[in-house]
């Protein structure tokens, strides 16, 4: 594919290093460039359908348009993002694979962003329909618990401590937090709730046609955007990881040089 223009080129070429395709001076690649353009195109289509082409709803009016981002972002974070974090955490604990640790972390961070979107759009949708931005309903409460748990996961990843112990703690939290998602999933079935049930029962779609198109565009747009973000976040995480390793090497080399044999004797204090 000839993709000379890319979303990444917005920030301009990097200063001194050779900007050939193999220099990796940015986190972009051919795959993410294509993915980036597909995301932008589907976002444009979503905005066109969701905000302009699709009609208002018969009772809730224009506010139905929040549905096209609320439900897709919920699906992306709860079903995709945190599942990747769960799988990555399990594999990390079994194999100590740095790759899966970083994948789990990248997916969780982007997932938290999308969960934030779910909460924000849900609140904005709740006011004109339910009559309140927030209520401590089972589904809303379990979603809020998840949000805090994954914020905790991200906080653990930022702790200033031994990287291996930190990754292990994060992985354990990544697994525990996933269990809570099952409560969200079934909260509308287990408890009486203000929140509506599953609208998109495949056997009985209760959405009007152009609304359904808007919804699927939302799902496609947010999934593609999620994929793009996770790949880039992973590459940034990999750079962070490499830089940590490099700095540790430098620090050890410096200390070895300056401390000498007396330093060795005082070690482990």
């Amino acid at each position: 594919m000839t993709t000379e223009m890319s979303p990444e080129s917005v920030s301009g070429p990097s200063s001194t290093d050779q900007s050939g395709p193999e220099s990796f001076s940015t986190t972009a690649s051919k795959v993410t460039t294509v993915l980036g353009w597909l995301s932008l195109a589907s976002i444009a289509a979503l905005l066109a359908f969701g905000l302009l082409i699709s009609p208002p709803e018969i009772s809730q009016g224009e506010s139905v348009r929040l549905f096209y981002i609320h439900v897709p972002s919920a699906i992306v974070c709860l079903y995709i993002a945190f599942s990747i974090t769960f799988v990555g955490s399990v594999i990390y604990l079994r194999k100590q694979s740095v790759f899966w640790d970083l994948v789990a972390g990248a997916s969780a961070e982007v997932g938290v962003v999308f969960l934030g979107f779910t909460l924000a759009t849900g609140m904005l949708w709740g006011k004109p329909t339910w009559g309140t931005y927030w209520t401590w309903d089972p589904r809303l409460t379990s979603t809020a618990v998840s949000f805090v748990l994954y914020l905790g996961y991200l906080a653990v990843r930022r702790l200033d401590m031994d990287p291996v112990a930190r990754s292990k703690r994060a992985a354990i939290l990544g697994i525990i937090s996933f269990a809570n998602l099952i409560i969200i999933r079934y909260s509308v079935a287990w408890w009486r709730s203000l929140h509506q049930g599953t609208t998109l029962d495949p056997r009985d779609t209760q959405l009007d046609d152009s609304m359904l198109v808007s919804f699927f565009l939302g799902l496609v747009a947010l999934s593609l955007t999620f994929a793009w973000l996770v790949i880039h976040r992973f590459r940034v995480a990999w750079l962070e990881h490499q830089l940590e390793a490099q700095q540790l090497e430098v620090a050890i080399a410096e200390r070895t040089a300056s401390a000498g044999p007396t330093g060795l004797a005082a070690g482990g204090a």
């Binding site: 920030s11 001076s25 976002i43 979107f117 924000a120 904005l124 973000l229 976040r233 590459r235």
Partner: peptide, 27 residues
Amino acid sequence: GYLIVFGSLATYTITLLRRGRQLAAQL
């Protein structure tokens, strides 16, 4: 709602790209 979502996505995207470029330059 749409402003929050797409505004945050744009900000997050730009932050990631900048950070990636900045970190890559150090390696």
